[in-house]
Design a protein around this nucleic acid. Structure first.
Length: 570
RNA sequence: CGGGAUGUGGCGCAGUUUGGCUAGCGCACCUGCUUUGGGAGCAGGGGGUCGGGAGUUCAAAUCUCCCCAUCCCGACCA
């Protein structure tokens, strides 16, 4: 490749609207251009990185015996209706109709489609199977953002495992965890496997691979002492025991004029500390009003509530809805004596006595509440969000909270899709058994952006060799015959050695060539100019360290090719 | 969807408050000369009708109304 023939539109200034580092650098370096919100064109440089990321994923999938497919990305509504997700997916799914008015969808994921194909499996002898493809997904995200990190159209590797039983699934799941760890290592991403909520994918067990970085959107609880880690949507912690005074009398109403918050209730005469209060939140769960109870000093986590109730849609009630349900405005709400509304309470409230909560009458609260006696809790669940500093559930050390990008997610699906699509095989006894499925996803473009997000300095990107758009650049400083001939000899030599190298033969000043090579993050730069030719030594600059060393011309090609080869697999 | 902001050549911006000459600057681009190991200098040149529509006015980038798009925060999201 000769740079003079390439389209690499680097910019002096990144667009002002690009805020995430990866977004600004990928645009500035000429890797991507935005078409509209959430849709990006990959330019030649961007496609090179994208392809390398995809190939690393592909190699690791192939290495674990997975078979590559390519399934359509436009689907008939039928398939989605079969699993029920036509209705549950809501606005995230792009929907359209064809000329005959048939309903269609653009795939947000491919469980349904792979399950359709898997209907042809008929015997346990064919299992296990592991299938994958790298295909475009469309998701009508409410808010695309941060360049390639959250988009509406993106390539994803999704794999699907099919097993005769849970043990088989567990093995495939564990194998994926290992393969994913290897993928992230090769990408240079310090991914942390964490317990996660399965959300709309269904199934029970899931692990996310999270990469700490500022542009992330997820909060992850990690233990600095042991390997415990969990998404805040799932993580738990150990709380110190609280000794309550027993209550022998009924709850007592007391006046709390103007008190509308937990904090205010701790101040007022007759009030109580936050951990002795019950916070009553009126939620609308799939159109059903429900009370969610957590301790006064705790935060309700919406995803935990969603998971606990198996709901599709959960939202806080409006103040008007709360008033209609309980007779008071938020700030004075409570669950004592409520019997006609479902009540779900956080485990941290179990067994608590002598608590304080709203009286369902503005400006009044109740004290002396014994939860077991006074509140008809229908379901206990883990609803509260863990806060940094609480004790690790495994080792007791104070937990930390880290901002992360979700780089991959693996799910144990069970038989949800097998049941919907009648994917069953005969077992040893000739009895049909539903196939146990797992699904496993890695976003290619998001991982590319995450590598950028974690590999840059003030001069631009610093790609690892494994995904760099070029592994090396031969920068020619003078376009006269001897210099160009020397540079081309090195360039040809590196190419013959299998190095992905570009020859910067542009008629431009040295400063521009150096700055561009640094901006686009090529790991190694070979600088060929009259000065070095006269010395018989060529300069080799390492992008990551900034170090330049001189190497005898005749040794350079072999030495650099070896260096790159040793780093190529990450 | 709620809140905030912004739309002026490819990129970054000024001009809008207080309507008024031919819409301006830097970068990038083209030509020439000089220069040539860290984003060159000089001279010349090309490109925008100011997000879109309607309106007010002798006159609109600038004022009014409607719409659209993009970005940020939140909600939401495998």
């Amino acid at each position: 490749m000769r740079w003079s023939n390439l389209f690499i539109p680097t910019l002096r200034d990144a667009p002002a609207t690009a805020e995430a580092a990866s977004h600004a650098l990928l645009v500035k370096g000429g890797f991507i251009r935005q078409l509209h919100a959430g849709h990006y064109s990959l330019l030649p440089l961007g496609l090179r990185v994208h392809t390398k990321v995809a190939n690393i994923v592909r190699e690791e999938m192939d290495a674990m015996g997975a078979q590559e497919f390519l399934l359509p990305t436009m689907h008939p509504a039928d398939v989605w209706k079969k699993s029920g997700r036509w209705d549950t997916m809501g606005e995230i799914m792009f929907r359209l109709t064809d000329r005959r008015d048939n309903e269609l969808a653009l795939g947000i994921t491919h469980e349904e489609i792979f399950a359709s194909v898997a209907g042809e499996l008929s015997s346990y002898k064919e299992l296990p199977q592991l299938w994958y493809h790298i295909q475009t997904k469309f998701r009508d995200e409410a808010r695309p953002k941060s360049g390639l990190l959250r988009v509406r159209e993106f390539a994803m590797k999704d794999s699907y495992s099919f097993d005769i039983d849970q043990n088989g699934l567990d093995a495939q799941f564990d194998a994926h965890a290992v393969a994913y760890a290897r993928i992230f290592e090769r990408l240079g991403l310090p991914a942390i496997p964490v317990e996660a909520s399965s959300g709309a994918m269904g199934g029970n067990d899931s692990v996310e691979f999270m990469v700490p970085c500022a542009a992330g959107e997820d909060d992850v609880i990690v233990c600095p002492s042991c390997d415990y880690a969990g998404n805040v949507e799932k993580a738990t912690s150990t709380l110190p025991l609280i000794e309550d005074e027993p209550t022998t009398t009924d709850p007592k109403k007391f006046p709390t004029p103007g008190v509308r918050t937990i904090a205010a209730l701790t101040e007022i005469e007759g009030g109580a500390p936050a951990d002795r209060q019950i916070k009553t939140m009126v939620m609308v769960i799939d159109d059903q009003v429900t009370l969610a109870l957590v301790r006064g000093d705790h935060q309700l986590n919406l995803q935990k509530l969603t998971d606990a109730t198996g709901a599709i849609d959960v939202r806080p009630a409006t103040p008007e809805e709360a008033k209609a349900s309980l007779g008071a405005m938020p700030g004075s709400l409570g669950a004592v004596g409520v019997t006609d509304i479902a009540i779900i309470a956080d485990e941290a409230l179990r067994g608590r006595t002598n608590m304080t909560t709203g009286a369902n009458e503005d400006d009044w609260h109740l004290c002396g509440v014994n939860i077991g006696r006074d509140i008809s809790v229908q379901e206990w669940a883990d609803l509260r969000e863990v806060a940094a500093g609480e004790a690790c559930p495994e080792c007791g050390s104070p937990l930390e909270m880290v901002r992360c990008v979700e780089a991959g997610h693996i799910f144990k699906l069970g038989t949800v899709y097998a049941d919907a699509f009648d994917v069953a095989v005969a077992d040893e006894k000739g009895q049909n058994q539903p196939v146990v499925m797992g699904s496993y996803g890695i976003g290619i473009g998001r991982n590319m952006a995450t590598v950028a997000e974690t590999h840059y300095d003030e001069d631009g990107l610093v790609w690892p060799v494994s995904v760099a758009p070029f592994e090396a650049v031969v920068t020619v400083l003078k376009l006269d015959e001897p210099t160009l001939a020397a540079a081309e000899a090195i360039y040809d030599g590196l190419r013959r050695k299998g190095v992905d190298v570009v020859l910067d033969d542009r008629d431009a000043r040295a400063g521009i060539k150096f700055a561009d090579a640094e901006l686009i993050g090529i790991p190694y730069r070979v600088t060929v100019g009259p000065r070095s030719l006269a010395d018989g030594e060529i300069e080799l600059t390492n992008r990551a360290t900034g170090e330049t060393k001189k190497i005898a011309t005749e040794l350079l090609v072999d030495s650099l090719a070896d260096t790159i080869d040793s780093q190529r697999r990450g």
